[in-house]
Design a protein around this nucleic acid. Sequence first.
DNA 1: ATGAATGCAAAGGTTTTGCACCCCC
DNA 2: GGGGGTGCAAAACCTTTGCATTCAT
Lengths: 174, 174
Amino acid sequence: MGFSMLTSSTQPRVLPCGRPKVCEANQPSPELLEVWKNQLRGYLISQGLKYTHQRWKIAELILMTGGHLDAQALVEQVKKMHHGIGASTVYRSIKVLCDASILKESLTDANGRVVYELFEHGHHDHIVCLDCDEIFEFHDEKIELQQSAVIQELDFREVRHRHVVYAHCSYRVT
Amino acid sequence: MGFSMLTSSTQPRVLPCGRPKVCEANQPSPELLEVWKNQLRGYLISQGLKYTHQRWKIAELILMTGGHLDAQALVEQVKKMHHGIGASTVYRSIKVLCDASILKESLTDANGRVVYELFEHGHHDHIVCLDCDEIFEFHDEKIELQQSAVIQELDFREVRHRHVVYAHCSYRVT
DNA sequence: ATGAATGCAAAGGTTTTGCACCCCC
DNA sequence: GGGGGTGCAAAACCTTTGCATTCAT
């Protein structure tokens, strides 16, 4: 398999603050990984680009970790897991993976860095836990609708939005 | 006065897209500037820090332009208006002014840069105009309330949030 | 075979830091 | 007079780019 240290546990993972990772996407099954791999391959072929070992390894790492990494963290992870892949390849791959609809920019974290996440259809917003730095997702239709109304009222036409709540975890033990 | 080119017009300024700057704070009166100056001086004294020409000039520039500048833009503005103030002083002053509750981080713009704005009591969210890059403010109580409800439901305690809508301007002429 | 992708290193751009000198209190 | 502040330059950081080499097709 090659990723056993990441795929092992079947019981829900628990965060430092005691909260289960309820809002976090589960790790993809081997079958799902194949689906993504084929999506990547298909995209690359369609664009006259090449499917390479490095591009897949980087994509796989993102998929296995559930996304929510900034560029720098991704470079470090890649260096750790796959000695030999250079930083520039990671940066270049981020662009390709975004174009391939596997990755997308999501929010900017507390340090002002752009965090990437898996491209999943369906919009969601984010909660950044100030206790454990974990990123959670939420979606609320009432908020979305009201936002649309407000934006229209002000004569704007929304293209996208980012709604990020920085919060403490009520589960916190410390 | 020294800032006449910035304070002149009494009629509402109009943006490139034709929209008046309705959401933008007005430029402060000389009296209000004195209030801010005293706030800065008071803060500095209370912290055992020193009131300097440079710190005030940087604060004044931010106040006169209504805020909404990233660090780089502020450095350029300062260089233009006050030849002799170095970039490092600007960066150091940004921190001091944030601590003094004159400035605060607000949003990250389309380029991923942190934009600072005047510290004003009363929360608001932002609309970034993709046509003219101007930043507008909005506030909607329904959204705020619903957000609070959602966050509480998920067992978080909100500290702050950033809600930024990137949009086109319906006024757009081009 | 051929053109794209890679790794390295160098360059770019932004922000921070070290230090001698300056100035506010 | 003394300690914080400033300007300059150098360093630190992150990201992009140029180029020779490697690799996928």
